[in-house]
Design a protein around this nucleic acid. Structure first.
Lengths: 348, 348
DNA sequence: TTGTACGCGTTATCAT
DNA sequence: ATGATAACGCGTACAA
């Protein structure tokens, strides 16, 4: 007979636990009077077990709160059941719709989503990519990021499926789903021109994508014979305050501006606040158009006209691409332009 | 109007690579003419190597783009160098500041942060916790979440250090850093009363924490002999539109209300918009106070008076606690109340 | 239907 | 200073 010299536990409702460490598959096997393999099957192929045995094992798993070790199974299977999303910042709510739908779609297929932040710092980007690759995710989704040369090389060497999103670049690492920022710039300029505006302004972030939009917007105005557009750049990330200051700057420089395109809804909200503050009627004296069609756009005063980007669709497509790849299925369209539309409300 | 420029597809570009699979430590060893152990040491204990050998190995690592497999090392070491953060939503109020600082502090110690979303769905919570525990993180940070019974049991059985944040509950699973929601309710009521208000309203979310704040706020008003406060509940998550509708509801029910406490800055921004829309002067005719002191609070019109919560400090403390635990150091204060303050601006 | 042997890639330990 | 060995926990392949 064995006399355990161990300690006593006075915690209420503490399940019986053999030791101080979390249980592993072998512990469950012992408790259920079966081999480790039978426990493994109870989890992954329950239909192959005798119902009676299955129940015994399940009871043991539940009572011991056994949770399989994904490091071990991932190593064995070379599948981590994990997908990583890399983005510049969580602060801008622009990406949330995308993340949400990506997460949801991946969960349906038994994948978990891991989120990594680069913080707009290109120098740290390669380090983050390295850290992500270490976990051997089954796929990587890059959101609104341009990978550095080193980052691209790492991603390619890793053989991990990569989906770049948000930006419809010409040189995709692997797969791509996004929209054309230059088409957006043109479309908004055309929208203003069609509404009779001739003095255009723009409040914009100062990253590479934003510059593409600005250039297209300015070029469309020029092509229509309009005077040069006035641009105010704001530092990333986009904030309400940035929108206020951007609009104030434009109006100070050129008070005759009657239409302003803001490169995010947050900036546009700031522009609305500033216009209100300066006593300008929107849209009668000043038209404002945003970008993103975020949740709040419909509830501003006046409701915001904005460029709608279907983040949900991007997330869904990115998830589909990665899932197809991991199943070795062909990806019919590895490069997708999801386009955009202009949601017409009252602000411009 | 739609600007979908169509869907393009082309064959994925096949990158140049010697082999068809990512290289492992053995491949690097072969290339550098050393054993696998020497490569491992070059990465983890470079000082123990002959400088000449070290350089050879490093060159091989760089040229092959070798990235260690964290599943294998995590399995071997029982340390995943991973910390998980669980939260209801990314959209949330001050969560972003917290996440940012948590991520930053953990990176300093060589940990990576994994983010999991529950989406306010208590039913899925246990599943997410199970999915997280599977990865054997070195710590788990719960942000603004109340774990279900099953979730708590899983966390305890896992033996993983857990820090609950945001909410200063009485029954912590393990460690805790937060603030008292009931103290906040009292403080804001006292603030309004000190400013001469007697007709108080509140726009609030409808989760458990929010109800605690509401109860404390209402009780403080009652204790001061004020008429009963009018409360409008809005569904999660907090939105600008919810704030507008909440305030409209309160004013419709009791037009004599002169001060409204909103349980997030986003709701407060909506209240400001609605007040403006209804032609109410803030703060002369209606005082508005928010919660969170988010980035935009200082730039609203008028600037928002709000309850400041130091998310950065919470993240820092949570990281410290987890790091101490993984080093088997004692955690001097496993339960911390970081308090709050009222940032006085012009809105109330 | 259930069990045994082996290997996934890495690193601590011990040996040289 | 460097190498050989074993073990981390799990699941496939095969055997019973």
């Amino acid at each position: 007979m064995d006399y355990d010299s161990g300690t006593f536990s006075h915690l209420p409702h503490q399940p019986v636990q053999a030791s101080n460490r979390p249980s592993k598959i072998q512990d469950v096997a012992r408790a259920a009077g079966v081999s480790a393999m039978t426990v493994s099957r109870a989890i992954n192929h329950p239909e192959r077990l005798n119902p009676e045995t299955l129940q015994r094992v399940r009871d043991a798993i539940a009572s011991m709160r056994y949770v399989p070790n994904a490091l071990a199974s991932g190593l064995r299977l070379s599948r981590a059941r994990l997908v990583a999303a890399l983005l510049p910042t969580l602060v801008g709510p622009v990406f949330q719709e995308l993340i949400q739908s990506l997460d949801h779609a991946l969960n349906q297929h038994g994948y978990q989503l891991m989120i990594g932040r680069t913080g707009y710092d290109a120098a740290q980007e390669a380090d983050l990519i390295r850290a992500i690759i270490q976990r051997r995710p089954d796929g990587i989704v890059m959101i609104g990021m341009a990978a550095s040369e080193e980052g691209r090389a790492l991603l390619q060497a890793s053989r991990i499926p990569v989906v770049e999103t948000w930006d419809l670049t010409d040189s995709a690492i692997d797969m791509l789903v996004g929209f054309s920022h230059s088409a957006i710039g043109h479309a908004v300029a055309a929208h203003f021109i069609a509404n009779g505006h001739r003095q255009l302004g723009m409040v914009s972030g100062d990253d590479a994508r934003a510059r593409v939009r600005v250039a297209a917007y300015a070029q469309a105005a020029q092509a229509a014979g309009l005077p040069e557009v006035t641009v105010a750049y704001t530092p990333a990330p986009s904030t309400l305050g940035g929108g206020r200051r951007g609009l104030a700057e434009i109006l100070a420089e050129r008070p005759e501006v009657t239409a302003v395109f803001c490169s995010s809804d947050t900036l546009a909200l700031g522009a609305l606040v500033e216009a209100q503050h300066q006593g300008l009627q929107v849209p009668q004296q000043l038209a404002v158009v945003g970008l993103g069609d975020q949740e709040f756009a419909k509830d501003t005063d006046p409701p915001l006209t904005t460029v709608r980007l279907d983040g949900t669709r991007i997330g869904q497509l990115a998830a589909d691409m990665i899932v197809a790849r991991t199943l070795d299925q062909p990806v019919d369209a590895p490069r997708v332009d999801i386009g955009f539309s202009i949601t017409q409300r009252s602000s411009g």
